[in-house]
């Protein structure tokens, strides 16, 4: 199905739900739930309970806001924006836990803070995919966001809207993320951890 067809279909499902058809929501939910859960699972590192809470809160917020949804771009971009904002709000509320996490992506590429690093954990070597996933976990939050949202086929323009910054900033973060990932992957492969 072409992207524009998907968007038109999403619009029809939303309109049906706003009229009271819960099966329309079920279809919409089924279409995006795994993507959102995957995104949050990789964004919120080593905290499955938090992932579940943010995931549930995101969909509850979607249910509340759907009657006012006005086809402003793709539904998936809107959905990820809500999920991301809920996550950021939670971080701000838990400043102590967030202090270890890097929120300023304009600095030189850094590895994510103690929350995602467990020096005594034996790293799993082998498949490239696993190594990349581990490296992604160690990215600063905003670089990680950009990288993960690109995995969801969101355009840089959409990511800029989600993060509330310019497209140049997003491109910069993606560039830093890719640089960091290359370095981290080499480090992980060699068996070391960058601090």
């Amino acid at each position: 199905m072409e992207k524009s067809e998907v968007e038109a279909d999403d619009g029809a499902l939303i309109a049906a739900f706003v009229r009271g058809d819960e099966r329309a929501f079920e279809q919409l939910y089924g279409r995006y739930k795994r993507q959102l859960y995957g995104f949050l699972n990789n964004l919120i590192v080593d905290n499955p309970a938090e992932v579940d809470e943010v995931f549930e809160e995101t969909w509850l917020r979607v249910l509340e806001k759907l009657p006012r949804y006005r086809d402003e771009g793709r539904f998936s971009a809107w959905l990820f924006r809500i999920g991301r904002n809920i996550f950021i709000d939670r971080i701000r509320k838990n400043r102590n836990a967030a202090a270890a996490m890097e929120l300023d992506a304009e600095e030189a590429p850094q590895v994510a803070g103690p929350m995602s690093m467990e020096p005594d954990q034996e790293l799993e070597l082998g498949e490239v995919g696993d190594v990349i996933a581990q490296a992604v976990e160690r990215l600063p939050v905003e670089q990680r966001e950009v990288f993960l949202l690109r995995q969801q086929d969101l355009a840089f323009k959409e990511i800029a809207e989600i993060q509330g910054c310019s497209i140049n900033t997003v491109l910069g973060r993606m560039q830093y993320a890719m640089k960091s990932l290359r370095r981290l992957i080499l480090e992980i492969d060699r068996g070391g951890i960058v601090t």
């Binding site: 739930k33 795994r34 993507q35 859960y37 995957g38 699972n41 990789n42 995931f55 498949e127 490239v128 995919g129 696993d130 990349i132 996933a133 581990q134 992604v136 993960l148 995995q151 969801q152």
Partner: peptide, 11 residues
């Protein structure tokens, strides 16, 4: 493969 979970994850 954990890389697959970068995109999608079972709920």
């Amino acid at each position: 493969n954990r890389f697959e979970n970068l995109r999608v994850h079972d709920v």
